[in-house]
Nucleic acid binder design. Structure first.
Lengths: 109, 109
DNA sequence: ACTATTAATCGTAATATTGCGATATACAAA
DNA sequence: TTTGTATATCGCAATATTACGATTAATAGT
């Protein structure tokens, strides 16, 4: 056990969970917020900004990259990371569909 | 280690991460979707609907309840769970603020 | 009181995540 | 070519999560 039974759920449910999990750690929230704030950035900035060790930040960046939410291009010795607009928009659409259910008709016992 | 260093992050960042983590498992996504769909429900429904064991569902419900996203009232031998409207709205506001950053000005290298 | 039903809790095994020191890689500058 | 700088990867320890069988608790119906 300790293994998620993805086969019990729809593709959409698994996708929502994967994206949500990406934001389920404050370091990754902070990374995304920083990328939005300065519009493009390198990993070194983030290590200072966030205050975790460099390998730890690198690992969090990798997770966000694997999901396609950010992308990195090599610039000499450093890497320039930024939000992947298309995938970010797609993620937002998926999660908004989940969040914006109508609560008005929701009557509780 | 294996312990999140919450002290390195703002309260808002930690809150966003906590809510996101709640949706980071497809079973919890499915539970919320089912609650929206039928507008009020009992745990038994969910065990059938989702196909995980009863203790597992109960555990997932507990996590959502601890975060305040759902609430349960006892109805005889069963429990009636439903979305907590106020907290759901607050969560939505917080996460929307995070998602709806302006991407137009985001120029990549 | 006894039995059935529903949901919570306990205990535990399997797996995943987090964090970082040490090291590797890749490029730039001297 | 050597040295410095930036980032990725490896390996591991600590902790968290997932899942469920067994049990418990609480109520309903007989």
């Amino acid at each position: 056990m300790g293994l998620i039974k993805t086969e019990k759920f729809s593709e959409s449910q698994n996708q929502i969970a994967l994206f949500a999990k990406a934001f389920g750690h404050p370091a990754r929230v902070a990374i995304i917020q920083h990328l939005f704030k300065i519009n493009a950035c390198v990993c070194g900035d983030l290590v200072e900004e966030i205050g975790l060790a460099q390998p730890t930040i690198s690992q969090h960046l990798k997770e966000l990259k694997n999901l396609g939410l950010i992308q990195g291009t090599i610039e000499g010795t450093s890497v320039c990371y930024c939000i992947n607009k298309d995938n970010w928009t797609a993620m937002k659409t998926l999660l908004n569909g989940f969040f914006n259910n109508n609560l008005d008709s929701n009557t509780c016992c």
